[in-house]
Structures are given as C-alpha cells and as structure tokens.
Write a protein that binds this DNA or RNA. Structure first.
Length: 281
DNA sequence: CAGTACGCCTGGTAGC
DNA sequence: TGCTACCAGGCGTACT
C-alpha cells in the first residue's frame, strides 16, 4: 500500500518534473476527486512539492496548493519530452488517459501529468497554501519518522497504548506515514508479536521497534517503494520492495529473522497481519 | 478518551 | 465476456 516510502518516491518524481513548470489547464474527469473545490490554477507555476505522512502537497506560485492523498490505488503519471523514451509497466498503468484517469494536468511545453485512481478512494483539494495545515488530515497527524518522531515521544505513546501495537504504529494521529506493510515488517524485524499492547513492551523492545521502523522505511525508500496493488512512480514504474518483504504477504513462507518459523496470517482490527509465531514474542 | 467496526470503491480471484 | 461472493485496505465516521 502506498505508505511513506511510496509517497516519498512519488514526491521526488513530482519535484523533479513539475517544479518550475506552468499549469496551463486542468481537466477534472471525476467530480468526486476535488470534493467540490473549484479548480483555477490556470497559469500558475509549480514552486515545490511537499509530503506530510502519506499526503502530498503541490505548491503553486499564486498562493494556492494542490493537496492530494492517493490512498490505495492513486497514480501520478508524468509524460513529457524528457520521459518519452521510458516505458511504464503496462500491467499497472493503462495507456493514459484511461477510464481510470480522474484528472489531467496540462503543462507548458506539451507535458502532461495524469492522475489515475482505480478504486476512487483518493482525494485532492485545491486550497490556499496557508490553509494546508488546517486540513484535519494534516492538523491531526502525529510526528513522522526521519522528521520529528523522537524516541522519547515514541516511548511515551507506546506506554499509553492498550490496543495492538500494530494498530498503534498505523495510527496516523500517533505516528505519521506508517501503514500496513511497514508496520508488519518493523514488528517482524524487532521480533515483537503484533497482538501485544504498546504498554506491555519493555524499554529494550521499544528501542528495537523504534529502530526497526526506521530501518524498514529506509529499505522501502531504497527500493523505490513496494508495488502490492497499483503503486507506481511518476514514470509508471513499479517499486521493488515487495521482493524484500520481511513478513508482509509472506504467509506460509519461512521467517527471515529466525529461519525456523513459518509466517502466519491473522487479522488485527480488520487488517491482514503477518508475523512469525516462533520469534515474534 | 481509546479502541473498534463499518463504509467508501472496484478489479482480481476462487469457487461453482 | 459465465456468474457470484468475497477480498484488499487508508481513513473518516459512528459507536461502545
């Protein structure tokens, strides 16, 4: 699922290809996408692309921003002179525009940014840049790894949590950016049972988990994210982290940590959860 | 308040 | 181009 590493990979791509380019026109094909916001960035130039947790913010030079959350199946696909020779993974990206294309950003110089979304869970907003941080999604989001998620805060949050530690890791109000894949893998790397509560963890376990979260996210970034369903980068290419999963999606396979246990799949709070019954205590 | 269940969506797949 | 039921899940909302 698109989580911090996947969204960051998209952010880098958008930054590389959009910054300095003028948006000539925006074609909104799915009225649900912008949730009623009127869209008038005509003539605005992209000044920067930011990420908050799993959210993206494309800043424009006219005081407005395009905010986007790609949820499960959103895809930003850029096509321009400089990317013409690159071929997207056709299994994941239908020729754009396709029936899944929800918006088309026509850029100066004949370049185009397509936004596809199969399940239509994704949303975008077109609001003043100064209002971005007032959106509930950003306002209520907790600190995120590599930015402001400090160990002391992490420890305090866990010591107050009575629910499954895996759900705590995925709670965006507590920690920003971690989703199902990386929560599963971090717990496997730290050898902690996902069903345990945060407050049941001792100091050493909390430390190991804190480090494991950063390690799996870093590995995800290194491989350009994980393509589990429809995630692709802005050139339409799949990520590679799915070939390096520790626990996620590996039910029935041998645990990479202990080499003994067989990864088992259960459900925690309605989400598929993968862990090693032998070494994750 | 904290934790949990459900709805939003639709392509893919297992089973008949 | 068989048809149906179910699964995947980030996050907002409602509920306990």
């Amino acid at each position: 699922m698109p989580e911090l590493p996947e969204v960051e990979t998209i952010r880098k791509g958008l930054e590389k290809y959009l910054v300095g380019k003028k948006i000539k026109e925006v074609e909104v094909r799915d009225s649900k996408l912008f949730q009623g916001d009127k869209f008038h960035p005509t003539g605005a130039i992209v000044s920067g692309v930011r990420r908050f947790g799993k959210g993206l913010v494309i800043d424009l030079d006219n005081g407005y921003s395009i905010v986007a959350h790609i949820k499960l199946t959103g895809q930003f696909i850029y096509e321009g002179k400089e990317t013409k020779e690159l071929v997207p993974d056709m299994k994941l990206v239908a020729p754009v525009p396709s029936k899944f294309t929800r918006a088309i950003f026509h850029l100066e110089g004949g370049a185009t940014l397509f936004f596809n979304d199969i399940r239509r869970f994704a949303w975008m907003r077109f609001i003043k840049t100064t209002e971005v941080k007032t959106l509930p999604f950003f306002k209520e989001m907790g600190p995120e790894p590599f930015k402001d998620l400090k160990f002391e805060y992490f420890k305090t949050v866990l010591q107050k949590s009575t629910g499954a530690i895996k759900s705590t890791l995925m709670d965006q109000k507590k920690i920003g950016g971690v989703g199902n894949i990386y929560a599963n893998d971090a717990l496997n790397l730290a050898k902690i049972d996902p069903k345990r509560s945060g407050k049941s963890l001792n100091d050493l376990e909390i430390k190991k988990l804190y480090e494991a979260v950063e390690t799996v996210l870093k590995t995800g970034l290194k491989y350009g994210g994980a393509t589990e369903i429809n995630y692709v980068n802005v050139l339409g290419q799949a990520g590679k982290y799915q070939n390096h999963f520790l626990a996620y999606g590996r039910a029935g396979e041998k645990c990479k940590q202990c080499g003994k246990g067989i990864i088992k799949k259960i459900r925690i709070a309605g989400r598929g959860t993968y862990f090693c019954p032998v070494c994750q205590k």
